[in-house]
């Protein structure tokens, strides 16, 4: 009897705190998503109204599509580039540690700082990117990166990748540790060139790392908020909005708590799919241990 109780005794403290600050709020948000509520006066139950409205809301759809852009951007850029950086810096030439530290540095920064710095990098008149383009004679490519609705989302993803690529690189470097050096040596003996070694030997062994990194990137892309909030607040006119940001605007600017909650719920449900993939992956790996 006592033995059965032991794990619960250990869990009592953490679980209580967790329930109050995390579990309960999640349930609360689910409830609120079925109401019309301005956050001040009494709320009113409206059934599925918020959700129906959401899918007729062009800005919500736009935010959803922007999340998709983030997702694609993260996956097709931070995975290959992260892998490339990792492969490159995994060669233990003197000084490789210094190179790594410098590339990692953005991960130590707050999004507030990142957003501020990048708005200077992308500033239209004197920002580094445009100045550089003009300097090499590509005046035509100099763009108002943060004010043109057509490109602003890509600019934000670009800024986010500054931090995301090193992150992917860290995960791949760890994955490379587990690549069997003997297999690589064997391939060299067999006369495989660098590309073949990479494609037929290293890549397959990296598979678990790749799966994890992709999932992590997808989850991060769906949660994107800080960079958008700091750099454009979703503007101009919602063109760079993502779900998290649109939820914040609806709930806290427009006083539509119920509507905002319903966005959070949708975002949660979409993310949940990937969370499940991730969790199953982790548990499966464990079974093999």
């Amino acid at each position: 009897m006592r033995k059965k109780l032991t794990p619960y005794l250990f869990l009592a403290g953490p679980l209580t705190l967790y329930s109050i600050w995390v579990i309960y709020p999640i349930f609360r948000t689910f409830l609120v998503s079925f109401t019309r509520w301005d956050g001040m006066t009494k709320s009113r139950f409206v059934g599925w109204e918020n959700f129906v409205r959401l899918f007729n809301d062009r800005y919500f759809i736009l935010s959803l599509l922007n999340n998709l852009k983030w997702m694609i951007g993260f996956v097709i850029l931070s995975i290959p580039l992260g892998l490339l950086f990792a492969m490159l810096m995994d060669q233990k030439y003197p000084g490789h540690k210094v190179y790594k530290s410098l590339v990692y540095l953005p991960m130590a920064l707050s999004f507030v700082v990142i957003g501020q710095i990048w708005s200077w990098v992308l500033e239209p008149s004197g920002g580094v990117v445009n100045a550089f383009l003009r300097w090499i004679g590509l005046e035509g490519l100099a763009k108002p990166w943060l004010s043109d609705p057509k490109i602003v989302t890509y600019s934000l993803i670009w800024a986010a990748l500054w931090r995301q690529i090193p992150y992917a690189m860290v995960l791949f470097l760890a994955g490379l540790q587990s690549v069997d050096k003997e297999h690589v040596e064997a391939a060299i003996v067999d006369g495989a060139n660098a590309f073949q070694r990479f494609w037929y030997v290293i890549l397959p062994e990296l598979r678990p790392a790749i799966v994890i990194t992709i999932t992590v990137n997808i989850i991060d892309s769906l949660r994107a908020f800080d960079i958008v909030f700091v750099m454009t607040r979703g503007g101009p006119y919602y063109s760079s909005s993502v779900m998290a940001n649109y939820m914040y605007i609806q709930a806290f600017h427009n006083y539509r708590m119920g509507y905002g909650a319903s966005i959070a719920v949708i975002q949660f449900l979409i993310t949940l799919g990937f969370i499940l993939i991730y969790v199953l992956n982790v548990l499966k790996r464990e079974e093999r241990l």
């Binding site: 967790y18 109050i20 995390v22 709020p25 609120v32 956050g39 949660r223 914040y248 949940l272």
Partner: peptide
């Protein structure tokens, strides 16, 4: 599972209730 999924949720879900609490 609860701990794991809690760590991945969109934090906006928590904003309003946490503030009021």
């Amino acid at each position: 599972m609860i701990f794991v999924s809690g760590m991945l949720i969109p934090f906006q879900m928590l904003l309003i209730p946490v503030y009021r609490f």
